[in-house]
């Protein structure tokens, strides 16, 4: 059984058909890249998987459960972690508190009014921080971190509930090439180590071909190809789509 099955989902905004009849699967332990030029509908598609948007038709099945109509917080509880294009962490907390916050949610201890948050799940939090190499910055305020460190913190937070699937929206956007590679290598090793599946959208071709097991390509709201990276690279349809924008030939950056 696949970890995530996307069954012909569609979404329109007024007259614009943003996503039409898209299907693909993510198998256990598989790293899947969802790519396409700007406006191809990959963000819309991605947001339907994480619950921020609701599909007009079709279904999304995770781990045997239909999550098509669930909200982001419910989907997370099923075991789906995610990271954002612009890293989302809690700026007014320390690094460790960020992770402790997630762990409280994992253990359903959010409504506690008495014991200070910092006293609980400290060791667990430090272990996660250690896994991403952030343990020596645990006491720092999150809003003063370098962006690469924020990204690593976000990764630790996304892993805190031991998800089966990690959704990563443009994981390397806004990063220098060197940082980008080290973050992706870290991600890949953590993912393989824990046997998770990953679905990520990405602009950088290097990242896609270095790390993805499977590549899914979208254009104008439709899925135009899926397969192994090498197959995709040689796919004439994909080349045509990308030649129009040139984005496929050189890694482009999202303007921040």
């Amino acid at each position: 059984m696949s970890t995530l099955a996307v069954n012909s989902i569609s979404k329109s905004f007024f007259a614009v058909k943003a996503v039409q009849d898209v299907s693909f699967t993510v198998g256990p332990g598989e790293i899947v890249a969802l790519i396409g030029p700007n406006g191809a509908g990959k963000s819309t598609c991605f947001n339907m998987l994480n619950g921020q948007l609701r599909a007009d038709s079709g279904s999304v099945v995770f781990d045997g459960y239909d999550i098509t109509r669930e909200k982001p917080n419910q989907i997370w509880r099923r075991g789906v972690g995610r990271t954002f294009q612009i890293a989302q962490t809690f700026g007014s907390m320390t690094v460790r508190e960020n992770v402790q916050m997630v762990l409280h949610s994992v253990h359903d201890r959010l409504s506690g009014l008495w014991t200070p948050l910092v006293r609980s799940y400290r060791a667990e939090a430090d272990a996660l921080l250690g896994a991403v190499g952030m343990q020596d910055q645990a006491e720092r305020a999150c809003c003063f971190l370098a962006y690469g460190d924020v990204k690593r913190l976000e990764l630790a937070m996304a892993l805190a509930n031991r998800p089966k699937l990690l959704l990563m929206d443009e994981p390397t956007a806004g990063m220098a090439p060197k940082e980008r590679n080290s973050l992706m290598r870290l991600t890949a090793s953590l993912v393989r180590e824990r046997g998770l599946s990953v679905l990520f959208t990405e602009h950088s071709v290097d990242v896609v071909f270095e790390h993805a097991d499977v590549v899914v390509v979208m254009s104008r709201g439709k899925l135009i190809a899926k397969g192994k990276p090498l197959e995709i690279r040689d796919n004439p349809l994909v080349q045509e789509v990308y030649l129009g924008t040139g984005a496929f030939l050189e890694s482009s950056e999202i303007a921040q």
Binding site: N50, G51, Q52, K71, P72, N73, Q74, W76, R77, G81, R82, F84, Q88, T89, F90, G91, S92, M93, E97, Q100, M101, V102, H104, S105, V106, R109, L110, S111, G112, L113, W114, T115, P116, L117, V118, S120, E154, M157, A158, A160, N161
Partner: peptide, 26 residues
């Protein structure tokens, strides 16, 4: 006490980042 408690942090988390809060099940 409430402010340092998990509830107070969760409340602050919603202010700091609503998307992250939702993405950790809150």
């Amino acid at each position: 006490r409430a402010l340092y408690s998990p509830f107070g942090f969760a409340f602050r988390a919603g202010r700091d980042s609503a998307p992250r809060s939702a993405a950790i099940g809150m």
